[in-house]
Design a protein around this nucleic acid. Structure first.
Lengths: 357, 357
DNA sequence: TTGAAAGCGCTAACAA
DNA sequence: TTGTTAGCGCTTTCAA
């Protein structure tokens, strides 16, 4: 085994050379055996494999990448201080890529463009094969593409101000329509909308979906029933107070732009002794279980299918990396999770595109 | 510029060779200039740097790592599929390491040992310089060290069943003591404890802290005031119902093992018309803002300082990577965030180790 | 079917 | 102070 040279020291691992020597073959042969390439006698191939296993050999991806000009890594730049929305996305994404042997560098930029640049620079030095960019909300952000021409990029839960960019976002409008159609299906006629801050793209889209659903059912749209405010439970409560202040006909259903608003609304209704879903049915947005399930009664909610979004993002990045051309904004469907707050008391059939829970 | 050889094709970047040629120096000189090593005339150094900038040269970390046997990457294996706890940790950690030019591979194992092994294998092939392991709860897990001898590992918010492992966790016992001492400081004598499931290490430690604080103040420990149950708001509500069922003297304060329990408790007290903090003061655990702030009144809570934990983990990993020896369990201090649910109505001085908010 | 050798882009030891 | 060169561990022609 010893050949007169100094013993390998430090954390340096075994090389393919060691395997070749142990198997008494050339290094080229060992490489072919290990990679399943070329034409080799089965016997030789197995001899090498056995030696590798025996020695506990682990190929060095760094060296491999150097040669192949593919690092089998991608970068992930996130601006959601790693929250509730990006995590399910990232999780699915990571899984999808790991299945292809691709590892993900995680970088948090926390909305600091300088930090983002710095990360991008680092990632490029590591020769990433692709990049995922994700953010807190689906509003436009400066595109990264021009900084790194040729690098495949997918924006997910995030949109770039560049038509040639590929962006994956939930279909907010469709999700809202789903919710409101469901309420209409319950026979409700006066459906209020407790909405988030209007500067959010998602908020405007959900409002559009709300109005579209009303229009499709020939229900009038009463602007007095749409209230915008912050993303908080407190606003959900306050909005209910306003809606039920007696100056206008009471709504018989409420669509809320997120589950915190929904929960606040439910609490306020409960305190006023208004029955749910009897007098007022509710649907929230996000399907954040910790909120939706803790509400009394549990809150129906639109699910953005973030895992599916992450999965799709992984798939899209792989496609781009394979040389495929993709661009534009893709809106992925939401689904509706029905809980007690909007349960049809009659137990009627569910509208299509929904799932009971 | 053209030297007769074929034009560089594909996504292959510029090499140090290109820079050297552009600056009309040798490749060795270029390397020294770029790395700030060796002795070079300032003029030459700047000429090289200028050429590099001009060309938009980015060193190839892969090649560099191959040579230096340091990849400047670390792996992060997480088992918290939920993210709420690990994210603040990971965020701080990533930042700490990025500052040192180290990038983090994020791997989600979702509690599947096979997946974890697979990830570890991948990471080793990428020649990571270190590994962080994090989990959902501070319970013991099988150590990874034996699988990858010599690799620096830090367990954070997670403990390995191996004395030689380095584990960083929040000081649950100390945190609980902080909370209960605060309640005692408010003059409360009968302090209940709404606890999580007993199989959790953290739950047992918090119970110990609770008892320790009582003992230190010479208050009796009434077992009837300690109730274990699931981590849900529903259990928080139910526990209050039990505590106030009239069969025992009423508590005048409650310490809850997390903020969901705390919020449930507050809601139930509110429905019973019991004033907070007047009749009953409360403190929760986790300082999960979305819960603590939405409660009425806002819930005081123990903060595990997860960012500090992440920062410390990064620092510890760097130390291990630098060859330092560290082992054992380190418990990092929690702090107390006081809100209305336990605000001293008199506005007295705060006990030490706490922060108002 | 196997072996030899030229590089992938970079660093560091040694020469000049 | 600068240039030359031998690798780092691996893949892939091209010969044998």
């Amino acid at each position: 085994m010893s050949d007169g040279r100094p013993v390998r020291t430090g954390r340096r691992g075994l090389t393919i050379n060691d395997v070749a020597r142990a198997a008494a073959v050339s290094i080229g042969t060992a490489s072919k055996a290990l990679n399943g390439t070329g034409h080799l006698r089965t016997e030789t191939r197995e001899k090498v494999l056995a030696a590798a296993r025996e020695l506990g050999y682990r190929p060095n991806d760094l060296a491999q990448s150097l040669h192949r000009a593919r690092s089998m890594t991608v970068g992930l730049i996130t601006n959601d201080s790693f929250g509730r929305f990006s995590f399910p996305i990232v999780e699915a994404l990571e899984q999808k890529l790991a299945d292809q042997g691709i590892a993900v560098f995680m970088c948090n930029a926390t909305d600091d463009p300088a930090r983002e640049r710095q990360h991008l620079e680092q990632l490029m030095r590591k020769r990433i094969d692709g990049l995922i960019v994700t953010a807190r909300r689906a509003d436009k952000r400066p595109a990264l593409g021009p900084l790194v021409p040729g690098l495949p990029i997918v924006y997910v839960y995030s949109q770039a101000d560049d038509d040639s960019a590929l962006c994956l976002v939930p279909d907010d409008e469709g999700g809202a329509r789903l919710a409101v159609e469901h309420l209409i299906g319950l026979g409700r006629k006066r459906i209020a909308h407790i909405a988030g801050p209007e500067r959010f793209d998602a908020v405007r889209l959900r409002a559009a979906g709300y109005r579209a659903a009303l229009a499709a059912a020939n229900l009038p749209h009463d602007p007095a029933l749409s209230l915008n405010g912050p993303w908080s439970e407190a606003w959900g409560r306050e909005a209910v107070t306003t809606l039920f202040d007696g100056t206008r006909p009471r709504p018989d259903a409420i669509f809320c732009d997120n589950d915190q608003l929904g929960r606040g609304a439910i609490e306020q209704l409960r305190e006023r002794g208004i029955s749910i879903p009897g007098e007022v049915a509710l649907v929230g947005f996000d399907n954040w279980d910790v909120m939706a399930l803790a509400a009394r009664p549990p809150l129906s909610s639109v699910d953005m299918n973030l895992s599916a979004l992450g999965h799709a993002a992984g798939e899209a990045l792989l496609a781009l990396m394979a040389g495929e051309e993709r661009r534009g904004i893709r809106r992925l469907p939401c689904s509706l999770v029905i809980r007690q707050s909007s349960q049809d008391p009659e137990g009627g059939a569910l509208p299509p595109g929904t799932e009971p829970k």
